[in-house]
Design a protein around this nucleic acid. Structure first.
Lengths: 335, 335
DNA sequence: TGAGATAATTGAAACGTTATAAATTGGGGT
DNA sequence: ACCCCAATTTATAACGTTTCAATTATCTCA
């Protein structure tokens, strides 16, 4: 089925026959090679447009070794609602029209995080890699740096060798969140942290601790659970603390799920947010606009993060010096 | 940098030199061609494993025309929190290990929905296509059927020619949701519908209307807004109805955002969910477990949907007859 | 014993592109 | 008229795979 009206799919040979120039000349003309005469280039590009020529990716890839593909290692766990959606939208937004396509590779939390990277390197499946949930001495970063393979990490590392990264200032977020609660008169602030292996956990911890110490107030980092724990486990831990003597009157929540859990814990113990306690949450989606009672939020723009990472990867693949390829997003307070 | 310990990347020629068989024989042996002697096949596969041979995708693609790529047209709008994440996880789960990779192509709601499909067809960018938010006479379905190109739609169409689809029984969902509210004694039920162009909107409408008529109760389909309207607009429409005489005492919510909006509308007008009115919502993520007051929910398993679509696409590409490639997920009531 | 069939293997071509090296053209300067 | 050089263009090979058609080795049967 499907008779082509135009006939066969045009190739360089088609254009060669059409214009009378050799295949090599046509290729050069389209590539913008300066050794080709301007008139020739015009003739060739005109013919290419007329016939709707588009270079064959497989052939180009075979010849040059460049895949025109960017791989995104996507974690199956995320504390933000809509993380994947926002992040991915930002990336595809930038990459649309560049000729690069985005492939998604699952990055399972418990499994070997190196395996997908190794596969990509060994089988030459991409020209660049993006990934999230970076660890302090992330083995993926080490491997990719050794291989001199282009990548951008979402999150910083503690390696001394510089590499491209995009991050959010979680230290500033934690500090501001505490200060906001202190300004509301709160004196005992609770925090659930992500797993210790992630770099941003240290940033959160440091910002949180230094802010509570400066303010001279009490704090607690909820023990036994992380942001990646099953929500019921987090809920149980929060409830336990609410029933203990001296329950917290302020909550700093790094994810939306935790914020809802904290809110539920308050409600379930007869406390009222805004009266008996306050919550400050980092949000990535507008969902909290619809939650009652309202929660104070700090916005993290994950779409912009995705855009920044994609742009940075393009620049890295273009050979820009790595030292300058960093971007730290500052928290934007809504309230 | 990066000195290969193993030396060069192994190709068919490497295996040929290693085993003494010709390149053609090696290729056939690995492909399982029955004309190749069993002993030869063993020798060759052993060498392939030893050297870690993996076929070059570009070369294979150039030769066979098959891309080993599946394109996912991903809409930038979705009423479910975590839709993208769940759906994509299901797809990659099935495709992992099959040799297919998934590329994500943005499918902008306002724009020409055919453009990305045309690009994929013309430039031979994929072997199969998955997409969502199917319309009654979806132009993408028409084009792909004409081109005899493998695809699976999320949602049915009204074309007479059969094609592969995976869908959720939204008619049953709407009916059950109404019945649940009626059983709680509710007599005036409200519903916000998606845009009229989508097939599943008709299913929702039909299930909703037939259930309210059977029960002999009042209903209203909120006018002037759809599920894709900006949340503030939906909120305003809901509030307007709450202030009017005879406000609804039951809400059927197709998405999580709408459910939160309805809950907020109740709260903001001093009504209490569970007392003055009830909400039944379709959910795709466990978020509602954390919302107070609790909302009755019906689960739609989007991860399973993604899995089903990927599996079905593989079968379609394997040449199975299209008539049998359908799957309708039934609602699972939680409460 | 040899012809004819069958089984197993192989050389060579092709997919569409880019890069290397060589060839052609048109002037300028002598 | 000649040579040389720059400006263009071109033939050719290669990337790694699959497949057609042809070749060689092995077997069966008269």
């Amino acid at each position: 089925m499907g008779e082509d009206i135009q006939g066969e799919k045009p190739t360089l040979r088609t254009l060669s026959q059409e214009t009378g120039f050799a295949v090599a000349t046509v290729s050069r003309a389209l590539a913008g090679d300066p050794r080709i005469a301007a008139t020739t280039r015009e003739t060739v590009t005109a013919a290419a447009n007329r016939l709707g020529y588009v270079p064959d990716r497989a052939a180009r890839r075979l010849r040059t070794g460049r895949t025109q593909v960017i791989s995104l290692l996507l974690n199956t766990q995320h504390e933000f609602l809509g993380f994947t959606h926002e992040f991915l939208s930002g990336i595809t937004e930038v990459l649309a029209g560049t000729g690069y396509s985005v492939t998604v590779v699952p990055d399972s939390p418990g499994e070997d995080r190196l395996a997908p990277v190794r596969t990509i390197l060994r089988n030459n499946l991409a020209d660049g890699i993006l990934f999230t949930r970076t660890e302090a001495f992330d083995p993926r970063v080490r491997l990719l740096m050794e291989a001199d393979f282009p990548f951008v990490s979402h999150g910083r590392t503690e390696f001394t060798t510089p590499h491209p990264w995009v991050d959010y200032d979680n230290e500033a977020f934690a500090r501001q969140a505490v200060q906001h609660l202190v300004a509301k008169g709160r004196r005992r602030i609770s925090l659930v942290l992500p797993g210790d292996q992630f770099t941003f956990t240290q940033h959160l911890r440091y910002g949180f601790l230094s802010a509570v110490r400066t303010a001279g107030i009490d704090h607690e980092i909820v023990p036994g659970v992380t942001l990646d724990s099953p929500p019921p486990a987090i809920a149980a831990a929060l409830m336990q603390r609410r029933h203990a003597p001296n329950p917290p009157d302020g909550y700093v929540c790094v994810g939306e799920v935790t914020a809802l859990l904290a809110l539920a814990a308050l409600t379930d113990t007869g406390a009222v947010q805004g009266v008996d306690a306050d919550i400050v949450a980092k949000r990535a989606s507008p969902i909290f606009d619809n939650v009652r009672p309202r929660i104070d939020t700090v916005f993290e723009d994950l779409r912009a993060t995705g855009r920044a990472m994609a742009e940075m990867l393009l620049r890295r693949m273009n050979g820009e010096p790595q030292e300058r390829l960093n971007r730290l997003f500052m928290p934007e307070t809504d309230v």
